[in-house]
Nucleic acid binder design. Structure first.
Lengths: 332, 332
DNA sequence: CCTCAATTTGGAATCGATTCCAACGAACTC
DNA sequence: GAGTTCGTTGGAATCGATTCCAAATTGAGG
């Protein structure tokens, strides 16, 4: 059997389509008796209003989309949980799609906003260049989370990545770090900011740039191991490594341990994110905690403002406080 | 400025709406000259066809939705990558949404299929009861992945969880396990099947049910630790533990190690999934590899068949081969 | 019994893209 | 030159839900 329409419901209930629609939308101007007839007909026909027809007429979908390179990042899945909860309490459905760092696929998904498949967009880790994101934000309902460009024109919700990297690097120095190294990722905005914070803290402690080791790559476990292997060929060895993510730090710790050295006695290691990996690691990782869930909630609130008050409401960047979590992978 | 419509494009290009639509849909029956005029007008007005209008008329969206309890499961994110790649090469956009194990939210998302917001649905870890899923599958384009009910009426793509659990339990026994324990999860279909496989292998090795320890809970690191603590109060201690996921196994190994016992010498530990956690663990975990990416691809193919040939094409359950990966967390 | 207001209802117009059908002009055949 | 075909085009009808406007019904007040 084909799908039932308002027409069918109206006929079955013995009322007009207008009345059916009023019942569907809980308009108060419906008598109790016709409301009952309509409700019965809806149940009998197993009727559901067709989303595309409704969206067309209403000019909105009550759906939002989030984009991220990967889904398996703990920070992103936690932040998206915040987005989802905030969205749900405003009646929105939130969906997420991975771009896999593929520009074409990202464009296709961004088009879902342009063609009205969704009302708003949250970008976790854009693949497109900063300028393109900023340009999009000029006209469309877009909010960035976690990764925000370091320009005045930028907008979105994040921690202060530079400051956080500065703080944890300071901690490494204060606990005796003299030959610092960092495993970073220049492909990401946040990665570049963390590098800046690292360099700044090291410089303030009187280290010259050529005293600092820096290697970079993707933020996964195997890359962490590979890059650490590279660091371990240095002479003299670094005595403290700041890693751009906990997963990388786990790889780093593993490689150091396998080389017969001790963490933190020989080399201290710090991570970033305070994901569950920080606790799974032995020794447990000193790291930076991001309030990911709240970042997600806030991002949705900002998006909601942009969706409902079009054009206006450019609140700019919002920074949430981070927290240094000291565990056993750094010296005391 | 408001959104441009086909009407606007037609006027600007000096042709009719029909011609504009024909250009948009690459109909061959358009002269070169009007195609150029239309293309120019589209660019000039920055026109995008409105999705809801198009979907309404075409009666399909070229979008599919996947549902999972959590996004951060490595198996799910890998399987969804397979779904996404297969979908993309058939011109579909694939989205995913977490249900958080909340029945109401799951219903709301399933409604997106019922009301035509998407053309098909992939369910990774349903919260609703098996019967409801089967009933949905009768009428709608739904495919299950990873978690398949153990009934003939069931359908979807998965590994043979019972056999896989049987295989890895056999391995534990063959390498000297005499007092077996399992950390499982009865809330999930796959969890129940894995328990069956475990019990069957143990029974075949001549162990009585009361010789086997069994505890259960959610599949996360902290639960793994907590449940292992419970196992370690047993007397005599188990000498081999089969965990329902690598994450749980990581927690199990950690707790055993912290208690001053050695893995695998005192207690062997096996995981499940062959996620990256299996390699992050020290010692690295013996586990079961699931071909998650291929499961995702296959699931989409099956879904595509259901979407395009409605009603028909109930291929039933498809099992993909798993693989026992032996590492250092079990004896040799 | 009539008027006026309040409540409820029916039905047409609308949203924007697609598609079908009729019609037009050009080219070709006999 | 009349008739046919082909390629191209315009425009109306359509998809299904919403919403506005006018009409119908009810009830109260005089």
């Amino acid at each position: 059997m084909a799908r039932a329409t308002v027409q069918d419901v109206a006929k079955t209930a013995g009322v007009s389509v207008g009345t059916v629609s009023r019942v569907l939308n809980k308009s108060p101007a419906v008598s109790e008796s016709s409301k009952e007839k309509v409700t019965a007909a809806i149940r009998q026909l197993n009727y559901r209003p067709l989303a595309s027809a409704r969206d067309l007429r209403r000019d909105r979908t009550m759906r939002i989309l989030a984009l991220a390179k990967n889904l398996n990042s703990p920070i992103i899945s936690e932040a998206f949980r915040g987005v989802g909860d905030a969205a749900a309490s405003s009646g929105y459905v939130s969906l997420i799609a991975p771009t896999a760092g593929d520009l074409e696929r990202e464009q296709q998904l961004v088009d879902m906003l342009r063609n009205g498949s969704v009302d708003g967009l949250i970008m976790f880790s854009p693949t497109m260049p900063d300028e393109d994101v900023d340009e999009m934000a000029e006209q469309l309902s877009v909010v960035q989370v976690c990764e925000i460009a370091d320009s005045e024109a930028a907008f979105g919700v994040s921690i202060d990545d530079r400051q956080a990297a500065f703080d944890i690097t300071r901690h490494l120095i204060e606990t005796g770090g003299r030959r610092l190294a960092m495993i970073g990722n220049r492909a990401a905005r946040s990665g570049r900011l963390r590098e800046e914070g690292f360099r700044q803290a090291a410089a303030e402690a009187g280290m010259s740039p050529d005293q600092m080791l820096f290697v970079e790559g993707e933020f996964d476990f195997h890359t962490g191991r590979r890059l650490t292997r590279k660091l371990l060929t240095a002479d003299p060895l670094p005595d403290a490594v700041f890693c751009g993510s906990d997963t990388v730090a786990a790889g780093c710790v593993r490689e150091i341990t396998d080389a017969g050295l001790r963490v933190p006695d020989d080399i201290a290691v710090a991570g970033f994110d305070d994901s569950v990996q920080a606790e799974m690691c032995v020794p447990e990782l000193t790291t930076i905690r991001q309030p990911a869930y709240d970042m997600g909630r806030l991002a949705f609130e900002e998006l909601l403002a942009r969706m409902t008050v079009p054009g206006a409401h450019r609140r700019g960047r919002t920074f949430l406080p981070h927290e240094l979590v000291v565990r056993d992978s750094t010296r005391t």
